[in-house]
């Protein structure tokens, strides 16, 4: 093989290699630039659905961050949002529509809709979340920290 063709061949290989290399960089970067389906994360606020999704005197458990939260629409159509983790032994609480209270089935702990522990073993109240309405949707959020 003469030097000239060898050089040409090597140059072609180099060019091809460089193009492949650039591809290996551009591909992930361009994919990175495409915003993911869940466009935004706001750890302090959660869209829990439309007002019409909630019937009067009912509740829904939603995932808020790493823990469940309970959103209640009471008899007067007022909304309440609280953490759904019982302060006694971490069971998930539920809404009792007959007594309009929040109830933990594990040891009969009872909270009112403001989250106050009013009966049974729970040592502390449930944390309340703030509720905002926007375009017929309900958003719950933590109080601003730090």
């Amino acid at each position: 093989m003469n030097k000239q063709t060898r050089k040409k061949f090597l140059d072609t290989l180099l060019g091809g290699g460089l193009i492949a290399w650039l591809g290996a960089i551009i591909y992930p970067v361009s994919r990175y630039l495409v915003p993911p389906r869940t466009p935004d994360i706001n750890p302090d606020s959660l869209d829990v659905g439309k007002v019409s999704d909630f019937q009067t005197n009912s509740a829904k458990i939603v995932r808020f961050g790493r823990k469940p939260a309970i959103v209640v629409r009471d008899k007067n159509d007022t909304f309440h949002a609280l953490t759904a983790v019982c302060t006694h032994l971490d069971c998930t609480v539920q809404y009792k529509s007959d007594t309009e209270q929040i109830w933990c089935a594990c040891h009969n702990g009872i909270y009112d809709l403001q989250g106050n522990n009013i009966s049974g073993p729970p040592p502390r109240p449930l944390t309340q979340f703030k509720i905002n309405f926007k375009n017929g949707k309900i958003f719950i959020s933590r109080e601003n920290m730090a």
Partner: peptide, 23 residues
């Protein structure tokens, strides 16, 4: 795949250097 590409390039660059030094 990426490693393969980079390794290929490494070999080509090495051969290129060899060809300069030969000259």
């Amino acid at each position: 795949v990426a490693s393969l590409i980079i390794s290929f390039l490494v070999i080509v660059v090495y051969l290129q250097i060899r060809s300069y030094e030969d000259k």
